[in-house]
Amino acid sequence: MLCFAVIGFGSGGLVRRLGLHRSAVALLVLVAAGLVVRSLLEDTPLFLAATVFTLAGAAVGNVILPPLAWAMVACFGAQSAAAYAQFGWYPEILTDDGAGAGWLGVLVSPSSVPLLWSVLLGLGGGSSLLTQGLGYLVAGLGPFGVGALHDATGSWTAPLVALIASSAVIAAAGDVVSRPRMLEDTLR
């Protein structure tokens, strides 16, 4: 917490001196170097010092990246959750056939034109350290959530409705991500 407070407070000055791109590279190098050094040490004081370097890099990133990055996390995470749920459960849905354009088509008539539904679901996809890291954590909820909903309800309806609803998250976050502005503009 101290690293985030002390180092994060000075991040604005670093960005003004180095620029956003050089600052981002510096923080990534700092985090990577700190992690490598930490893995090689057995001495507690040196391990803690390397931890400070690692957290310093994370603190800078935590300050300079959030405005756009969180929208990117939401968009990437929701899109990936739907994609991984598709990869994991689409064959089962088709096999069960007790179950369109995209998920709606699968909900209404899964086996009528599976190639079309597969293409449309793929087109709904599309896609950085923060975005992918947290995005994949969110994405991991997709297949698990779809399976849990299916097990709880005994039907594909609730999981498919949840995946259709995830489109609203993708649309809202995608709107923020696609606005005509640069990340640097959000730091002023």
Rank of each mutant, 00 (worst) to 15 (best):
H21C: 00
A24S: 12
L27Q: 12
M72L: 13
V29H: 05
L40Y: 01
Q86V: 08
S39K: 02
P110E: 05
F87G: 14
T153I: 00
L30K: 03
F47W: 12
D185P: 06
T153E: 01
L68E: 00
L55H: 07
A139F: 06
R188F: 05
A158M: 12
F144R: 13
G125E: 09
L134G: 11
L20D: 01
V52D: 06
L163K: 01
L160K: 04
R181E: 03
V146Y: 09
L130D: 01
S178P: 00
L107M: 13
V138N: 01
T153N: 01
G135C: 10
V169E: 03
G100E: 09
G174E: 03
L18M: 08
G34R: 02
A24Q: 11
S23H: 06
V108G: 00
L121E: 07
L187A: 11
V119A: 14
L65D: 06
L141M: 08
F87L: 15
P114Q: 04
T95D: 13
A56G: 15
G13R: 13
E92F: 10
A32P: 09
P45C: 01
S111D: 15
R188C: 00
G57F: 08
V60C: 11
Y90N: 09
L30D: 05
A101L: 13
H150K: 14
G147C: 06
S167P: 00
L18F: 12
L130G: 02
L20C: 02
G124P: 05
T51D: 06
L18N: 01
L40P: 02
L35I: 10
A5N: 07
I64Y: 12
R181N: 04
L187S: 11
S23W: 05
R181C: 02
P91T: 02
E92M: 02
F9H: 13
R22I: 01
A168H: 00
S127C: 08
A168Q: 01
S109N: 13
S118R: 13
D151R: 14
D151I: 01
F76Y: 15
V169G: 04
I7H: 03
A148K: 12
V60E: 03
P180E: 11
L55A: 14
G98Q: 12
V177G: 04
L149Y: 04
T157G: 01
L27G: 04
Q132P: 00
A165M: 10
Y90L: 14
V6M: 04
V106L: 14
L120W: 11
G13E: 04
Q86C: 10
V36I: 15
A78D: 02
I7F: 13
G145Q: 07
Y84F: 15
G140W: 06
V37C: 09
A162C: 10
G142I: 07
F76A: 08
E184T: 12
P91L: 05
A152C: 04
A69V: 13
L137Y: 07
V60H: 09
M1P: 09
S23F: 06
A139E: 06
V52N: 05
C3K: 00
L104A: 13
L160C: 07
G98D: 10
S128N: 14
F53E: 04
R16S: 11
A85D: 06
V161N: 04
A24P: 00
D43F: 10
W103T: 07
A71T: 07
L137R: 06
A5E: 02
T44A: 14
S39F: 08
S11M: 09
